[in-house]
């Protein structure tokens, strides 16, 4: 308990690190995931194949393997990051999470009524217009709950960065527990609390947004 209080500065820093990693890779994977979902429903064959291949491969890759790739393998391919730690983690998490965002959005797109797309087409909108003006705004709303669970999973997934030279909450847990072995359980529950501080508001926000953007079918 004492350790938790005396080391709170360190833990707070780690909490901010986890939070910024979650926020940045969350936003980026939402963008990339939307692009991928557009590809997967587009009328252009090669784009569809690319989207499908991407999602299938990434979803079946362990996240640790993804981190390993960007940290150890990518330099051999000539992809160098300015510094180890934050940026490889952002890229790994974005590449990984965007596949799940894509799937959540695609299920949202599938849930939009056929009549909506048909109506859009019958007034002469093109594919791009149909998607961006009519279908995606509705798909987003249906996709909000699964998207929030993807974001909650992302929050937990940032912990993998602890194994790849980024100091966030789990890395701090490891360091503090090594330094104060007898306080291990307190540190564990303290760090757990930090994660819940991120995930519980996300869950609550999910409920709020769901209620706010709910629309009659």
């Amino acid at each position: 308990m004492e350790t938790f209080i005396s080391e709170f500065g360190t833990i707070w820093g780690a909490f901010l690190a986890t939070l910024s990693l979650t926020a940045l890779s969350g936003v980026l994977s939402l963008v990339l995931g939307t692009v991928l979902a557009t590809m997967r429903v587009s009328p252009v064959g090669p784009l569809r194949s690319f989207g499908t291949a991407y999602v299938e491969i990434v979803r079946n890759t362990p996240l640790t393997l993804m981190f390993f790739f960007w940290v150890f393998v990518a330099p051999s391919f000539g992809i160098l990051f300015p510094e180890l730690g934050f940026w490889p983690a952002v890229v790994a998490l974005t590449v990984y999470t965007s596949a799940f965002v894509c799937e959540a959005l695609r299920s949202g797109i599938n849930s939009v009524g056929i009549g909506q797309a048909e109506a859009a087409r019958s007034i002469g909108l093109t594919f791009g217009q149909t998607l961006s003006q009519i279908v995606l705004p509705q798909a987003w709303r249906t996709a909000v709950p699964p998207l929030i669970s993807v974001l909650i999973a992302l929050t937990k997934n940032t912990s993998v960065a602890a194994g790849f030279a980024f100091t966030e909450l789990v890395a701090i847990q490891q360091r503090l527990t090594n330094a104060h072995p007898s306080d291990g359980l307190f540190i564990f529950f303290g760090i757990a609390l930090m994660y819940l501080v991120i995930t519980i508001p996300l869950g609550l926000a999910a409920g709020q947004i769901e209620r706010k953007v709910a629309f009659a079918r």
């Binding site: 937990k156 993998v160 789990v170 819940l196 995930t199």
Partner: peptide, 11 residues
Amino acid sequence: RGLPVLMLMFL
């Protein structure tokens, strides 16, 4: 369900 698996492993 709300905790990272890695954290449990370190525990």
